[in-house]
Design a protein around this nucleic acid. Structure first.
Lengths: 249, 249
DNA sequence: CAAAAAAATGCAAAATGCTGCAACAAAATT
DNA sequence: AATTTTGTTGCAGCATTTTGCATTTTTTTG
């Protein structure tokens, strides 16, 4: 086996498992550990991996700066939640997605609301469990660790089989021209499906996320019915969205 | 396990819980406490954590986020969780149900376990999301407010369509003659289905629940393979169960 | 203050890494 | 074709790192 072959095997291995052990590779590739070490040194010099005692790690393996998930801008989100309450009616079938804004909304639902709420987000579901009267249905599937919501498996099928009155969704970026955008592919897919499943789509977002863009497109503005931010209805920032036909609260 | 991996795991733990105990980490990571102490010292020197007597704390927040107080008999349940670890293997498909004992089990899973875990319990799922390597699948459905788990709808069907290696379930009453009993009809149904779906059934319970009975029957003792309590294997309380053929841990 | 828990220290065993060297193969040169 | 050059590999010997254990010291707790 050629050196390059070996090294690409090593890189692939690291890509998959985030780590390799010299001893494992030695056996698997049938060369001495010295050779493996030399390979690892070369790859490390090229900056492709991080060499450590006993093997090597993927460069992206540094969870050290793991972003702490805390709810920021709580006041704004509470304000949004309170505006959104005006859209609720007893007997509705409501879809609520994930994110801290939706969670805040879930926390602020009227205590006397009688409705059936579907969700795909674990934290949102936990929040909804505290409500006295709501029926809560969780649409299950494989859970994404980042977003803490169901992203694959049955979710898309399940969403295609239900019809909801209204869908409340958070978002990452909203632009008058480019529409709603996000940077997590799985989240994009499932958000699209949620919108499809609902008669009415309501976007909840703090104003910071207006006029910002991300890699992947979720939908055009035309697919959103109502936009709720913490801003006053007449705020200039909202004008472009109003002109595109969105209902602003 | 490589040193760097271990340290990443430690950092992650601290990020999530804001604190770690050397003794916990020693057990979870299967190294001596000396090694853990050395790791903590290194991380502290790098300024990433704050070392304290008995473990370490996050630099930013000095309060624990995990409401241990809500779980009663934590020590017993931790002991059970640790015994249960011996049944786990990499690559397994594992079903974990709800209840505080199961949650404690979920909290104590080995940090290097690679497995796919299915659950129907919201709190268990939340706990599992904190694990670095596990795949987590939530079996959705209408959520029971009492038990905080999926009880109807698709759950029973979904459970009938999968085959798990092992099922860990908590329980409310276990009697040598009357078998496993509970007092929530929906929970009984879904527990039955979970047992059906698994090759092996493991019951986790604190000893208080032994020899107590409830209204509805879940199953006979013969349908349980292993019983794990906080008691010593030789405890007299366990004798009747051993005689019925249960494997005791 | 005394007992228990945790930490520090020193030490030894094991694992891993490094260096120089020789064997060998492939490519380049004469 | 023969020789030189270059690169790769495995090995032996030595250095370094890591880890666990025994012992002593420090801290915590009642």
């Amino acid at each position: 086996m050629l050196k390059q072959e070996r090294q690409s095997v090593i890189l692939r291995e690291i890509d998959i498992h985030n780590k390799v052990l010299s001893s494992d590779l030695s056996i698997k590739l049938e060369v001495s550990e010295d050779t493996i070490r030399r390979d690892l040194n070369e790859l490390a010099e090229q900056g492709k991996i991080t060499k450590v005692h006993g093997g090597a790690l993927s460069k992206s393996y540094h969870l050290s700066s793991y972003p702490k998930s805390q709810v920021y801008s709580v006041e704004k989100k509470t304000k949004i939640a309170q505006k959104a309450r005006s859209l609720l009616r007893n007997g509705m079938f409501i879809l609520i997605s994930g994110g801290t804004t939706c969670r805040e909304f879930a926390r602020n639902l009227p205590l006397d609301l009688n409705a059936t709420i579907f969700t795909i987000s674990l934290p949102t579901a936990m929040q909804l469990m505290e409500h006295p009267t709501l029926e809560v249905v969780f649409l299950g599937g494989k859970l994404s660790k980042n977003a803490q919501l169901s992203v694959t498996g049955d979710v898309l099928r399940q969403l295609s089989e239900i019809r909801m009155d209204i869908c409340f969704t958070g978002l990452n970026g909203l632009d008058p021209k480019k529409g709603m955008t996000d940077n997590d592919w799985e989240v994009v897919q499932v958000t699209k499906a949620m919108m499809q499943a609902s008669d009415q789509v309501v976007a909840l977002t703090i104003s910071e996320k207006l006029n910002s863009n991300h890699r992947m497109k979720v939908c055009n503005l035309t697919q959103i019915d109502t936009l709720i931010t913490e801003l006053d209805e007449e705020d200039d920032l909202l004008l472009p969205f109003k002109q595109e036909g969105l209902n602003i609260l």
